[in-house]
Nucleic acid binder design. Sequence first.
DNA 1: GATTAAAACTAATGATAGTTAGAATTTTGA
DNA 2: TCAAAATTCTAACTATCATTAGTTTTAATC
Lengths: 206, 206
Amino acid sequence: MAVLKTKRSSNKVPKSRKQILDAAAALFSQHGFDATSLREIASAVNMKAGSLYYHFESKEALILEVLNIGIENIHQNVQNRISSIPENSPFSLILEEAIKGHLEALLEKGDYTSTNIRNYGQIPISIQKLSLDIRNSYEDLWRELLEEGARKGEIKPGVDLKILRLSLLGMLNRTIEWYHEGGLSVDEIAIDQARFFLVGISSESS
Amino acid sequence: MAVLKTKRSSNKVPKSRKQILDAAAALFSQHGFDATSLREIASAVNMKAGSLYYHFESKEALILEVLNIGIENIHQNVQNRISSIPENSPFSLILEEAIKGHLEALLEKGDYTSTNIRNYGQIPISIQKLSLDIRNSYEDLWRELLEEGARKGEIKPGVDLKILRLSLLGMLNRTIEWYHEGGLSVDEIAIDQARFFLVGISSESS
DNA sequence: GATTAAAACTAATGATAGTTAGAATTTTGA
DNA sequence: TCAAAATTCTAACTATCATTAGTTTTAATC
């Protein structure tokens, strides 16, 4: 299969290209990959479907770029959050901050990110693969975060870090299915979810 | 909108009808609602697309039935699990059993259930609504389970039961994105996930 | 074996999808 | 101002989709 080129001629980013990406991200995240037509995306930026092909090689190349931007955004956001607290902060604080960063990018900032979380599983596998590296790099951030918590003894010995990471991120990513504006705030949710994983809900002293 | 009738003439269930449902559930859960054509489903049971209309009124009526069966299956499975342990068991045991039942139905038994978890958000809203009652009834099971845990004092006071329920079920439902046969067993995952929510991962005494 | 009902097929319809080639338009830069 | 480059549009093409009407085949019943 030919590599999907992105038709970005130089390093300056034309205006309409970003507008197309924005519109595509919004529509993909709302209605999904298959249910969103290029005509809808084009219409959202006052264009005709055929014109999109000047900027993107195909519908798949378009969503691929949306997916990648989504991961980059959330990665950056979590990174920034973690960097904003003092070094050698306790693991509990780092975790809470990382969770806040993840949820914030997903729920508030994020058509690109939510497109990724929602649609990654339903796009052609050939396209998924092209997004794997950038995706793994974000997962590595969490892997290292948890490993450090374990190394410093702030995570109980015996905890399976892989199940932990997948479960934690799973919980976070699924919030997109029930979060709605005007309801619970992102911070409320983040704090509670951090607490669940840190100290649990049981009132018994273990 | 006309109510979707199901074309089930009596209470005996014809063989091919179930075969169609099975095939549809398998394909929907793998490729999603939009990406699965009636031709594919028909082909999987050695039929032609048009023939499906003898059994189902539309593609939407077909997935609606798959969705409903999925919820019924998981509801039943969790219910059975809970009933299988002694009454007045501690909350921690009840929770672990419910989690096992949920994951088992989702990951092992479950094309119908996984179709539901994966596709509910991407089918037409008019169809979602037709599945709401049966869906809420399953959510009620969890609501009551957690409320009882709180009433009996086995859940810390102050825990927001709604965020708890949505977070817990979110974690469970997302396992479908990373579980694969031959890897971690369902029971391993269930036990770990129950522990995360019950006592947390922190080694510090809170 | 004839009659009826059930089940599946054939072949078409209209809608919509992604995509493309070439013409028209707008923007840019000398 | 004018030519070249960048951008968008027009108008199709092919493919595929859900759906339907009418026909044929299979199964059941008497």
